[in-house]
Amino acid sequence: SSYVCVECNFLTKRYDALSEHNLKYHPGEENFKLTMVKRNNQTIFEQTIN
């Protein structure tokens, strides 16, 4: 599966890399929402900020 930060167009295969991205680029933000999307037999988790 892949993880994408929709706000930044940041894409990674690792959830911990997304967490690091959030700490660096969205410090103090807590209203993240992950949406699971299936595309071409791949699972993509799209992160948006509410």
Rank of each mutant, 00 (worst) to 15 (best):
T43P: 14
V4T: 12
V37D: 09
I49A: 11
Q47Y: 04
N22L: 01
T35A: 10
T48R: 11
E29V: 12
L18W: 04
M36H: 08
Q47A: 01
V6T: 05
P27T: 11
T12D: 10
K13I: 07
I44C: 08
E20V: 06
K38A: 08
S2P: 07
T35P: 04
N50E: 04
Y25N: 13
L34W: 05
K33R: 08
L11R: 10
K33P: 08
L23A: 06
F32V: 07
I44P: 01
C5K: 01
L23T: 07
E46A: 02
R39I: 05
H21G: 00
V37E: 13
Q42L: 10
C5D: 01
L18A: 02
I49W: 11
D16N: 08
N9M: 05
F32N: 02
K13N: 13
T43E: 15
K24W: 03
E20R: 06
A17Q: 12
C5A: 00
S2D: 04
E20D: 14
E29K: 11
Y3S: 01
L18H: 04
D16E: 11
C8T: 01
N31C: 02
F32R: 05
E29G: 09
H21D: 00
T35C: 09
N31Q: 07
H26Y: 00
T48Y: 03
K33N: 08
R14A: 15
F32Q: 04
Y15W: 05
Q42C: 07
E30K: 15
Y25T: 13
K38Q: 12
N41Y: 03
R39H: 14
V37H: 03
A17T: 13
S2A: 04
P27S: 10
Q42P: 05
N22C: 03
N31S: 11
T48D: 09
C8R: 00
M36Q: 14
H26W: 01
K33S: 09
N41L: 06
S19E: 14
S19A: 03
P27V: 05
Y15K: 12
K13Y: 03
H21W: 00
S19D: 15
L23I: 04
Q42N: 14
E46N: 12
L18R: 01
K24R: 08
L18K: 00
N22D: 05
T12K: 02
T43Y: 12
F45P: 04
R14I: 15
L23Y: 06
A17C: 15
V6K: 03
Q47I: 00
T35M: 09
Y15G: 08
T43A: 14
K24A: 12
E46R: 08
D16T: 10
E7R: 08
K38S: 08
V4D: 12
Q47C: 03
E30W: 05
E46D: 06
Q42W: 05
R39E: 12
M36G: 15
P27M: 11
R14F: 15
Y3P: 01
R39N: 04
V37T: 06
N22A: 02
R39Q: 12
Q42K: 15
T43S: 15
K13H: 14
R14K: 07
